[in-house]
Design a protein around this nucleic acid. Structure first.
Lengths: 232, 232
DNA sequence: TAATGTGAAGCTTTTCACAGCC
DNA sequence: GGCTGTGAAAAGCTTCACATTA
């Protein structure tokens, strides 16, 4: 269930503050969901709560961690060391949940060899060997969009079955391979959509008269090219 | 509808290749969805297709862009110029869809003043003024988790009603303010969950016997702290 | 004939509401 | 009394299948 990580985060915060137990109501509020939903979600893991009391924070942290497979080590390889790959290599949030950046790779020989976040960037030629030797189980693709499918195919061929894709492309993979995508530009587009709705409905634009009614622009709009994760 | 940006991306690719019309079947395949779903989604925008022929690519690009509000300019401010903020400031994917990085801000006076992506990073003190003067409509939060709620509150107070949050925290905002979140660590956790399932079900572990059955680890698992977007 | 647009069926997710247990 | 766990109702979303139209 995709909400377990959210609960885990809220529980970890409670755990740090030394809170021993929590009710579904409180935890739901902390995770930003409805309490009935939270109880139903947790009930799929088993009956880990105590009626009349709530949930034991430490116990639930452990149970969710186990369910998510976070009690084991997950070596991750990042492919494409541009701005975003660089940022992810230095991102502290991975290590704290059992994810270990095991390798950084890039197709550019000028990038390979550089030291980033205490690691030497390897060349794509070594991909298969690195996956094998370091038991990499998750690949993170931060290449430009045109390169992503090729990299994906090589990852799959090397035996990887979980891919996190930051390149703005739909990846096609064989059955049994999981792909999750993060597209920054799509998130902004969804915000813009709602933002536009607001000013269209609300007659009194809050503060900025300049951003009022969406003008009916002339046809033949933006030709729009594929946004790339890293602009060279 | 959250899938429109996906369709738009597929259509833009077709447009670049000079394809004049596309059937729901083809476009659905390119966007990675089912064709009936695509037709239903598009039917909410109006009847922009031609039975027996398909959809006019250019016309549909324009209609979706208009629906999403991409025919107007969206000035974006990025708050928190660590690794991720830095990467986003340089990210080419924004500009191509009407999103313009109007300002970079940081609470650290050592960071403020630096030039990044051709812009001077401003100090948080100037936030309200920048939002007002540059008509910023979307705020992107890339601060460490503990700072996120404070920044969010200031953005809201300054009149911003759309926020993209990269900090691993649930932000609480008043009604009418939209928040979308991107949590890199959560994406990995979901992948790990499925990955674990695979090896548990599949009796023949593909290649790596080391990563086989999830061992029943001893209780009292990882104490886990809140992952931060930027480590220091 | 080819492919859209759409009621209706089917499925999934969310919410309600309360029995059951501490 | 308080709070979990869970059937049952409600809502939302996806898919089917076909009438409809260029």
């Amino acid at each position: 269930m995709a909400r377990l990580p959210l609960y885990l985060r809220a529980l970890s915060a409670l755990s740090e503050r030394g809170v021993p137990t929590v009710s579904s109501e409180e935890l739901a509020a902390a995770a930003g969901v409805n309490s009935a939903k939270l109880r139903k979600d947790l009930s799929y893991l088993g009956s880990y709560g105590t009626r009349g009391v709530g949930y034991d924070v430490e116990y639930l942290v452990y149970q969710i961690s186990r369910e998510l497979g976070l009690t084991q080590d997950w070596p991750v390889a990042i492919i494409g060391i541009g701005n975003l790959g660089h940022a992810l290599a230095n991102y502290g949030g991975f290590a704290s949940r059992g994810f270990r950046v095991a390798a950084l790779l890039d197709a550019d020989r000028a990038v390979a060899g550089q030291r980033i976040a205490g690691m030497v960037v390897r060349h794509m030629d070594d991909l298969e060997q690195i996956v094998r030797d370091d038991h990499v189980s998750i690949g993170v693709i931060t290449t430009p969009a045109p390169a992503a499918q090729g990299v994906c195919d090589r990852l799959v061929a090397a035996g990887i079955t979980s891919i996190l894709n930051f390149a703005p492309t739909v990846l096609s993979v064989p059955e049994g391979v999981d792909v999750r995508k993060v597209d920054l530009s799509i998130e902004l587009q969804i915000l813009a959509f709602h933002e536009q709705r607001k000013s269209a409905v609300d007659p009194a634009a809050p503060d900025l008269p300049a951003a009022a009614q969406p003008a009916a622009s002339p046809a033949g709009g933006p030709a729009g090219d594929l946004p790339e994760v890293m602009p060279a």
